[in-house]
Amino acid sequence: MANIEKIPRLRKENRKKRTNRQLLILLLLFFLVLLLVLFFQSSISRVQDISVTGAQLVSPGEVIKQSHLHFDMQYLLVNKEKVATSIVSAIPAIESVEVRKTFPGKIELVVKERPRVAFLMNNRGELYPVTNKGVVLRQYPSSDEMVDKPIIRLWKTEQLLPEFAEQLDKLDPGIRRQISEIRHEPTKNNPDRLILFMKDGFEVHTVIQDFADNMAWYPSFVQSLKREGKTEGIINLSEVKWFEPYKQQQTNGNKQP
């Protein structure tokens, strides 16, 4: 019986405690919202500084423009991946972008440019870099740059350039340095035909398919020719590999199949 009397008393105490706690929570919530509003209104929450590093060919302005970032935009709303993909998809010269965010308000775009494997020369003698994906970067004519890549003088079939660029990228840099000019001269039976002029005086006839593998033979091929005391000439490096000195070519002209 005494039990029943005791229970209501207990409840009263509970209610008092609960109202106190509710008040506290409400107050906290209020201040929190206030703080949030203040934060988003202030300049701390906004992009204050955008910097670009690692761009050589592409100008920082271009990168920022394509990133769709601008000053005073909400810092927290900047999506790293979105920024990176929008830059990479808009500028073919760029392979990847790393977006680094530092609070408050600092964004750094670390650009990695695509390796450029060759230059394409047009008939006015202007040079354009070619990326390892076979894209010709026409908006960046290289006038003052050091010409440190093979020069493509003639390219007939545009669709074959990506495949070739990929092969060229795979090629050992030491051999790549030996190549002076590249000419794509397809014939009816051989749409892949390439003629290369090498720095050491040899003319190489090869094909786009397995170009890197075939060219890998070049140094040892030349080495063994020199050991045999052969002079300069034409080296065929396709599935078939043979050598013909220049003189012979002159005397019995078109003997080759």
């Binding site: 020369m121 003698g125 040079l127 003052d144 740059e145 050091m146 010409v147 440190d148 093979p150 020069i151 003088r153 003639l154 190549i179 002076s180 000019e181 000419r183 002029f197 090498m198 720095k199 005086g201 003319e203």
Partner: peptide, 27 residues
């Protein structure tokens, strides 16, 4: 004489001169 186009271009940039007319290919 006997040098390749790429060597000419390399030399030109080293000497700070411009290669303006290129005829033919090879050496």
């Amino acid at each position: 004489t006997g040098k390749t186009l790429r060597e000419v271009m390399e030399l030109a940039s080293l000497l700070d001169i411009q290669v303006t007319g290129i005829n033919g290919e090879g050496y």
